[in-house]
Amino acid sequence: MTFRDIVPIIVLITLLAFVPVFITANTVLNFLVFTLIIALAAQGWNILGGFGGQFSFGHAAFFGTGAYAAALLQVRLGINPWIAFAIGAVAGAAVGWAIGYLSFRSGLRGSYFALVTLAFAEVLRILANAAAFTGGAAGVLIKLDVRPENFQFESRGAFFWIALALVGAVLVLTRWIERSRFGAQLVAVRENEAAAKALGVDTLRVKLGAITLSGAVTAAAGCLYAQYFLYVDASIAYGTWISVEAILAPIVGGLGTVFGPLVGAVALHGLSEITKLAAGSVPGIDLMVFGGLLVAAVAFAPEGILGLLRRSAQAKGAARHA
């Protein structure tokens, strides 16, 4: 990876960093922070699903682990939230490695990998919902104590910047993956596992690396969620909603691309807001549109929004040459 590879990322993040200067409405900032959290979770999914071709239907397992770790470490053990945040990401990595080790070593692929990840997330949800340590069905409330050293801020803009910085860091990480041996091997595993093995790729190690990174990134999104909303319960943290969000954004944006998850998350949640404006506050109407969009994306735009943009740019270029 060279400096030139990350120039577009730096430009984009710098431009976005000015948003809170111009927009100060809380509802808009709320929407933006939430969208960035989803984008981060989706970036995690994209490392494993987009680059590695291993479709997890249970990324809630990582998101929830991050959210609960961040909340419980400070509420129950009094650990500083910033440190709790770091531990949360590491915990997500550990859960990722464990789930990956069990399922990849057993040779689970395709639908079976999707099923087993779904089941792991459900087991964690049931446990978190039942255990006393996690607050059971009542969930965990993080005490309001607005101090920067406590990871709580007066302005929502600060949170926006932190979320943006994390998304930017993962953009760089993803660009590195794209330009590295690890990435080349990961993509080779996605395209053809037997051929990758024959070329000396330790496929188990590569997949484990991907799911561990993926778990850490999605868990970081969970930590951020807990810290922003100051509340976590089992159906938020380990609910299927976040697994679905994490799958949708990269597919709609552009599977296995650096910017896909961010583009997808922004597009989906922008659309969701528009739907809500148009249809009023009918519950489920936005997700209904998401579901239809997923089918449509697979059917008509397998390379997502970025793919469509690239194709139309190519078509325009060709028209100009003609």
């Binding site: 639908s111 519950p283 936005d286 997700l287 209904m288 579901g291």
Partner: peptide
């Protein structure tokens, strides 16, 4: 394509479930 089927049925499930919710 197998992984497409996975995603299409997932999309259908989300759409149906939330249509019922709506």
């Amino acid at each position: 394509n197998d992984s497409n089927i996975l995603l299409v049925t997932l999309g259908l499930s989300i759409a149906i479930e939330n249509a019922l919710l709506a």
